[in-house]
C-alpha cells in the first residue's frame, strides 16, 4: 500500500486511496453501529489517527504567511490587471513543496514510522451499555 503524494499524478482516472483518504472515509462515514446494536456492542480500544490539519488556526495563518513570503514575486507586475493576466495564463512557474505541504506530510511520517512506537494517537473507546 502506498500513500498517494498530493500534487503527484492528477487527472480523471480513478486512483487508489492513500491512508489519508481511508481515514477521511471510514472514521467519519459509513453506518454507525450504535444506531442499530445496543446490547451486544463490545467496547474495544481504538487507536485513531488525528493528523488532519486544523484549518483557520494560528498555525495555519503563520504557515500561509511563510509560504507567501518565500514566493518569488519580484518578476510579477504590480498592477492588478497584469497580475490577473499572468495567473490566467498559468503563471505558476514552480510547484515547490512548501510549509503547507510539509504540514500535510504528518500522515506519511506516521506510516513510515509504523512499528517504531513513534505514534501520535488519540485513544478512544466505544462501549455498549
Amino acid at each position: 500500500m502506498t500513500v498517494m503524494q498530493p500534487g503527484g499524478s492528477s487527472g480523471g482516472r480513478p486512483q487508489p486511496s492513500g491512508l489519508a483518504d481511508v481515514i477521511d472515509t471510514i472514521l467519519d462515514k459509513g453506518l454507525v453501529i450504535d444506531a442499530y446494536v445496543r446490547v451486544s456492542l463490545v467496547g474495544i480500544e481504538l487507536l485513531t489517527i488525528d493528523a488532519r490539519v486544523v484549518i483557520a488556526s494560528v498555525d495555519t495563518y503563520l504557515r500561509f504567511a511563510e509560504a507567501v513570503n518565500r514566493l518569488d514575486i519580484s518578476n510579477d507586475k504590480e498592477t492588478l490587471t497584469d497580475l490577473v493576466g499572468d495567473v490566467t495564463q498559468g503563471g505558476a512557474k514552480h510547484k515547490t513543496k512548501g510549509a503547507l505541504e510539509a504540514a500535510g506530510d504528518k500522515l506519511r511520517e506516521f506510516t513510515d514510522a509504523q512499528g517504531n512506537g513513534d505514534r501520535a494517537g488519540r485513544r478512544s473507546s466505544r462501549g455498549g451499555d
Binding site: I26, D28, K29, G30, V32, I33, V42, I44, L46, R126
Partner: peptide, 8 residues
C-alpha cells in the same frame, strides 16, 4: 459499509 470499529 460500517464505520470503522464495530465489534459485536
Amino acid at each position: 459499509p460500517l464505520r470503522f470499529g464495530a465489534v459485536i
